[in-house]
Structures are given as C-alpha cells and as structure tokens.
Nucleic acid binder design. Structure first.
Lengths: 202, 202
DNA sequence: TTATAGCTACCTATCGTTAGGTAGTCAACC
DNA sequence: GGTTGACTACCTAACGATAGGTAGCTATAA
C-alpha cells in the first residue's frame, strides 16, 4: 500500500488533463489511466469528479495567495528593490514571465481558467482576479511609486499599468497556445517595455 | 417538411453550445434538443459531430475573410478615412468593439476559439490569425500612415500597434467573461486610446 | 418517381458512480 | 505477544444513464 501520494497524483493528472481538454471533456477513465489505478479506487480519495475540481481550485488558490508576488508585494512599503530603469524592469518582468510560463502548476491552472471561463462563473471570477485585477493593481502601485520618485512622467497610473501589462498577458497566452513562439514573444516584451519607458520618461 | 433552414439551425445551435461548453463537452442530444428535432434527423444534414465543427469553421472563416475590416482595409491605398485625432480613433475603435462584442456569430466564434485553443491545433492557428496577427498587421499599417502624415511621432510601429490593440483584446475578453462589466471596459478603452495619442503625439 | 427530411427503435461503447471484497497498517485490549 | 476492530488503498464487477451513430420506415415536395 502506498503512502499519501496517490491523492496528489490524481490532482496532478487531473489538472494536466483539465488544462487541455477542460473539465467536462475529461473522463474519470482518462484520469485513472494516467495515474495507474482502477476507476473505483479514485473514489477512495474523492467522492466525485466535481470534488477533484473543487480540491484543485482550493489548492491553486492557496498556492497563489501564498506565493504570488502580485498579492504579496506592496510597493508603498517596500521601495528598496523598485526597478529604476528600463533594463531593470525588463529583467524583472521577463524573469517573472519565464517562471509563470514554465511552472507546471501555474501554467496548467492558467490554461484551465481560460478554458472554463465561459462555463463556470466561479472560475470566471478567479480568472479575472488572478490574471487581471491583481496584476493591474500590483503594477499600478509600482508605477505610482515610480512617478513619485520622478522616474516616470505623471499620468493616469492605472491606464499606464494596463498599457504595460495587458500586451504581455496576450503574449503569455500566445505562448500557452503556441509554445514554439516563446522566443519571439519574449523579444516583443523586451522591445515593448523599453519603448514604454522611453515614451513615459520624464 | 421544412425548407433548407434546418441545417443552418443546427449550425447556429452548435456554435452557441460550443462557445460556452466547448466541442467535446457538448452532446448531440443537446444540439438536437435546441433545434427541436430527433437525434437521427441530425444525421440527414451532417455525417458526424466532427462534420458540424468543420462546417462551422469553414463558415466562420468565410464570413471573416469577407467582412473583417482587419482583412479588407489596406491603409496605404485608402488614406481618406484615416483617423486624424484621438476623438476619431476612439469613435472608430469603440464602434468596432461594440460590433464584435454583440454580433452573435462573431462573439460565439471568438469564445469557441478561446475554449478550443489548447486542444485543437487548427483552431489554435485560427485564433492567433484572427485575434492577433491580422489585427496587429492592420493597426501597424494604420500607425505607419499616421506617422508618415506627422500625426504620431516616429517609433517602432509594430510595438505601437501592440500597445494600442492588445490591452483592448484583454478588455474584450473580460467582456466575454463578465458581460456586466462592458461599460467599465469601454471607459478604460476610451481613456487608454486618448492617453496613447497624448504620449505618442508628435 | 425519386430524393429529402423527418421519425422510431435500436446498436455498442463509455460515462460517472457504487457495491462488495481483499489485503495491509495501526492502536487498543486481554 | 497475539487477537481484535477500525481504517486505508486498492480491486472486480456491475449499475443506470447517456454518448455518438445506424437501420429502416414514412411523408412530403419536386
């Protein structure tokens, strides 16, 4: 008898399948096939297919609120490692992009939210919060700090944050869809951030 | 016996269901239930479920190449109705956004591509072309014209097009996911375009 | 007359789920 | 120390429901 890792294996396999096919289109048979157990054994760990999704959402949510820099960092109280130049901003943002593109849990969770956003209202809200609201709020705070320090010119910081982040969101989605275009997307991100700093320079 | 509109009704109902649930998660029973015929009758019009998707893709593709301004318009040869001010650009873009948000076929096709992009390579390519490549190409041409006319300052036109369009793509997706936020999204688009013209003004 | 578009009835395969059973683990009790 | 019972993780087998799809009939329009 194995230890308590079967439950986690079920969650991992489910997230991998849900992130490509979606929840409804994925069958219990596919999940147990990936894990290497029989169908009935899955029900020792989860009482239903829905319970797997619920557990996944809970896990992802916990991991997100624990580790996401977009939730943790408050620039107002932590101005020490504020990026001061385009170079520093590129380095910071590209590093973050590479991480969230390749972290298996984060990237699969992101794709699953994309697939389920029109079907599941709960996941729609989560999608908006994680991949829009929290990111915009984070960069709005960062930009406000940079305006206050005289690095950027004074303009609507929320619009500036949108202009900085949202193109990057689209390029991340492009990489999720066509991973072979990552280098091209990163190059666009680089040029975009430098141009952003150039035009908003004080 | 009805005329030749049952086939179209099947396509319409299928697109409506596929655009929320996805292709695999939608059953033939749901489709024929929406149309009001029996399951076997559907097979008088389409030889399989896959054939419905294929016909939809073909139809959507034809409608798109026929009607999309992003395919038709070439600014180099048609500079007469080039937007000359932020006001004109806002009017043109917001009008276009409202149209593609509410046209039932366009909006459902767009959502279906979002749902199927990680599962179906053919639809992934279509998604990139229709909602990224063609739009960027169109606005790159428009911006090049405006630079040439001295309306905008000289900078990388593709990055400028990305900075103008891609935030709007994200707001359109937000409206698809949470339609009640359309007014808020349109207000952001308005502020964004005006700020874009302000910072890139010559 | 013939093609078309609908129907009823049915096919096999798979769906999510459950019943019931079998080993192995662990702590409590005699 | 050995027995007992609760518990866990897995199993085979089966459940009713539904999946996509087909055979073959009927009614109507051309």
């Amino acid at each position: 008898m194995e230890k308590g890792n079967t439950k986690q294996e079920i969650l991992d396999a489910s997230l991998e399948l849900f992130s490509v096919q979606g929840f409804e289109a994925t069958s219990i048979s596919q999940i147990v096939g990936a894990v290497g157990i029989r169908k009935a054994s899955l029900y020792s760990h989860f009482e239903s297919k829905q319970a797997i999704l619920d557990a996944l959402v809970k896990d992802v949510l916990e991991k997100y609120t624990e580790h996401s820099i977009f939730v943790r960092t408050k620039w107002e109280k932590n101005e020490d490692n504020l990026p001061m130049s385009a170079d520093e901003a590129v380095k910071m943002i590209v590093g973050q992009i590479r991480f969230i593109l390749h972290d298996p849990i984060i990237s699969r969770a992101r794709k699953m939210l994309v697939i389920e956003q029109f079907q599941n209202p709960e996941l729609a809200k989560l999608q908006t919060k994680q991949n829009y609201t929290d990111v915009i709020r984070y960069f709005t705070g960062l930009i406000q700090c940079m305006i206050r320090k005289g690095i950027l010119r004074d303009d609507d910081p929320e619009i500036m944050a949108s202009q900085l982040c949202l193109p990057i969101s689209v390029w991340i989605n492009l990489c999720d869809r066509e991973p072979e275009r990552e280098a091209e997307a990163i190059a666009l991100v680089d040029k975009h951030i430098r141009q952003f700093f150039r035009i908003y320079k004080k």
